[in-house]
Design a protein around this nucleic acid. Sequence first.
DNA 1: CTGTTAGCGCATTCAA
DNA 2: TTGAATGCGCTAACAG
Lengths: 339, 339
Amino acid sequence: VSITIHDVAKRAGVGIGTVSSVLNNSRPVSDVTRQKVVAAIAELGFVPNPTGRRLSQGKTGIIAVIIPSLSHLPQTERLQGAMSVIGKSDYELSLYMAETVSQRNQILQTILHRGRIDGLLIFSSALTESDVQRIRQHKIPTVLIGAYHPELYSITLDNAAAARTAVRYLVDLGHRRIAYISEYIDESLGFPVWHHRYQGYCQALEEANLLPQPDYYCQGSCSFEQSRQKAMGLLKLANPPTAIITDSDKLVVNILEAAREMSLTIPPDLSIISFEDTELAQAAQLTAVQQHLFNSGRQGIELLVKIIGNPGAERSPIRIQLPIELVIRRTTARPMTKA
Amino acid sequence: VSITIHDVAKRAGVGIGTVSSVLNNSRPVSDVTRQKVVAAIAELGFVPNPTGRRLSQGKTGIIAVIIPSLSHLPQTERLQGAMSVIGKSDYELSLYMAETVSQRNQILQTILHRGRIDGLLIFSSALTESDVQRIRQHKIPTVLIGAYHPELYSITLDNAAAARTAVRYLVDLGHRRIAYISEYIDESLGFPVWHHRYQGYCQALEEANLLPQPDYYCQGSCSFEQSRQKAMGLLKLANPPTAIITDSDKLVVNILEAAREMSLTIPPDLSIISFEDTELAQAAQLTAVQQHLFNSGRQGIELLVKIIGNPGAERSPIRIQLPIELVIRRTTARPMTKA
DNA sequence: CTGTTAGCGCATTCAA
DNA sequence: TTGAATGCGCTAACAG
């Protein structure tokens, strides 16, 4: 039913090899013949069949993306970035979700074993050594986003720098008592981003000659109740913080809640900065750290496609560190002067 | 590099046709030869190359999913359901996002024209007639989820029934003043689910001999401020509702907020039911309408695969209506007796 | 029951 | 610069 290069060749009065050459610029073609071929393609509305192409080239044209969660906004934003490039390329994007380490292992094993993919993009997941070995054995071009391994290409975010920037901004505003509520730390799957942020937080405090106070750091799940209580605990300290930095925008919403219950106005009674600049952060006008998530997804695919087209590239993986910036909105201000 | 049926055939001492037969059960094979083939496959760790298979069958092995948004939890839940089946099948899932009608048009056009897909799954999107015509022209097996068109297969949710159930439950509890805050209605892309819900709401009220009061119905965006104000307006009426039904869990959270500001306890001062039973609803213990979203995605793929395998099926599309049920949690109770 | 052969649509090599 | 022939891995039709 569908029309093939043979039809085009016949129509243009040339051989199929020539049509293919025109299609791929794989060898010189005289202008006259090229015109004829182009015309024939247009007249027939010919579209090359990717399956044939793939078979002949021994490729699948499929890029697999492994994502830890679909209900986490930052991840889906990143995914949208990836999709935006894939749509224009010759690749299809095949999606896999791995919520746990064992799921990830299984997916990785299946995917690699079946050999149906040309490339692999992994989001925010700290791979085990055996995972990495498997990937390298199969020689599948791979890019990590939001995670790092010396033997693989990666696109990372400088979380420590982000934390430093946030703290410095608060210090410059005059804050001295700065707390950090981090998300519950499940290192099993994730890359230790929280650890890096905590380091940056401590470092910036020290630079400002402030001591990181154990009381001012806590971690908890982002459930409504849990995080609200953490915040309440912080705000009820004898010497409560005047500013709080926090991992996720959900956390912020719950902190806002806790503050309201205590009749604090935000700001100036309390300043808040989130590490997630999502839709929610924009809607609630939160000062937040912009991580260029969409962009990281886009660049991930671009890099991957480049690697796929450049065999042997696996041997010298590159790490791209993406910039991070603070978006100042309405949840930060100078602290209240002591009453 | 990779191993093929020829290798298996040689190893088992049979012809490739026999290997293929064993692989696909496409024709009878004696037990002895089957054993030999199976053994050879295992020893060699052979996995059939899907590209070869597809080329030979003239299929692509790809199912495209068009989703209106990736930041909307109900949609991603549905997507997860779809992915759960796809992983076990021979198909790959290719994802496309269409946030507007024009985007959807473009995607549809591109996708159909390229002819790289075997099937199409469309989430919560009211297609235009020209969209439907295009789909039927290309004869691409298609399933709609959360939307309906007489000429296409569809899996729908009975939103009117859901609304009736919710209202009846409230009426049985003793509520007489029941309001409905709906999401901002953008009919351009979506299926008129809100309309159906509104109808169900009115119908159930009438069955209970209650008049739908215009004051008790409003719609607004789910932005924090907007929806909070809508709720406040409702609660400040001379004769405020004792129960509110609402479209999304985000809306509920904002209503809770408004209620708290007015020092209302939920319940019993106010009862609330949401039409979205998401993670958030579970965390906040909301009484909600369970829509089996995951399940709808799963069934969508299953149905689509069935249609693909059954040529000519497009001519008599079937509509599957999924059940909906009320999950009773902690935001509903008998209304306060008049003070 | 089973081996052999002929394509599927394309890229590519080999001749011309 | 170009046409024709070969093969990618597989399924299906054909011939035993």
